[in-house]
Amino acid sequence: MRYIFLATILGGVLILGMFGLRGHKFNETPVEIFPDMDRQDRVNAQSRSDFFADGVGSRKPVNGTVPVGFSVPEVAANVGDAIVDGFSLKGNYFNSGQIGDYYGDGLPEEIEMDKDFLIRGKQRYGIYCAICHADSGNGNGRVRSFGPNGGQIPIANLHDAKFSDPSNPEYRPDGEIFEIITIGRGLMGPYGGAIPAKDRWAIIAYMRALQNAKINAEKQQGKEPAESQTTSTE
């Protein structure tokens, strides 16, 4: 037993002597069993690259190409025009959610409301929104239980009157929801850089469909739409 113990110690010393401790400084190239991606075939931002003739590592998009999932616009867009397949520009209702100094309500005229548009909204909602607001929109998504000290994160219930009832003094019209998705509010971060403008409107359309489905279900059961107790992050 004593020899096994000594052999284990000697083996550990031998391994440390061969490979060294991570963080030690020495002149020889270390032997790396797991390099942990310390060296990669990549180019850092704003760095030089000998791969290209001009030596510039950061490249402009190739002419005539568009990102995956986007279509080529039929005509060049002017500032303020609706970029149906892209991200927001300031200007009209489609891109800002505002009409003059006020938030608009309803979908922009550039949007064609049909089944495919709602399906797209459901898909985008499932990717970006359901993790917090839940599939039903009631604010009980998986993220809610990860509050500090075992508590719950206050997440907006999209069925609250201020989101679903236009007669409520705190009602958020579609244009304001669009702005919240774009630049964030409260604990909710901005999604304007991740979700194109048209998809933001699709999410809003699907959110309204969820609200209407809940209201209609309660009417069929002979109940008044319930006031939610979920605290909003706004």
Rank of each mutant, 00 (worst) to 15 (best):
F5V: 14
I9D: 12
I9V: 14
I9S: 11
V13R: 10
V13Q: 12
V13Y: 13
L14R: 09
F19Y: 15
P30M: 09
V31Q: 13
V31N: 14
E32Q: 10
I33C: 07
F34W: 12
F34Q: 12
P35H: 09
P35D: 04
D36S: 15
D36Q: 12
V43S: 10
N44P: 06
N44T: 11
A45I: 09
R48N: 14
S49K: 10
F52Y: 14
F52N: 10
D54R: 04
G57A: 09
S58P: 03
S58H: 10
V62Q: 11
N63G: 12
N63R: 11
V66I: 06
V72H: 12
A76K: 13
A76C: 03
A82K: 00
V84A: 12
G86V: 00
F87M: 04
F87K: 07
L89K: 11
K90V: 08
F94K: 05
E110F: 02
D114N: 09
K115M: 12
F117H: 04
L118M: 08
R120S: 06
G121E: 08
Q123N: 15
R124S: 05
G126K: 05
Y128D: 10
Y128I: 03
C129I: 01
C129M: 04
C132R: 01
H133T: 04
G137K: 00
G139Q: 02
G141K: 01
V143G: 03
V143R: 12
G147R: 10
P148V: 08
I153E: 09
I153A: 10
I155G: 03
H159A: 04
S164Y: 06
P166F: 04
S167W: 01
N168M: 00
Y171L: 03
I177G: 03
E179F: 05
G184R: 04
R185L: 07
G186C: 04
G189Q: 07
G193K: 07
I195P: 03
P196H: 06
K198P: 01
A205V: 02
R208Q: 11
L210H: 00
Q211E: 02
A217E: 06
Q220A: 15
Q221G: 08
E224T: 13
E224M: 07
E227F: 05
Q229N: 09
T230N: 14
T230Q: 12
T231A: 15
T231K: 10
S232F: 09
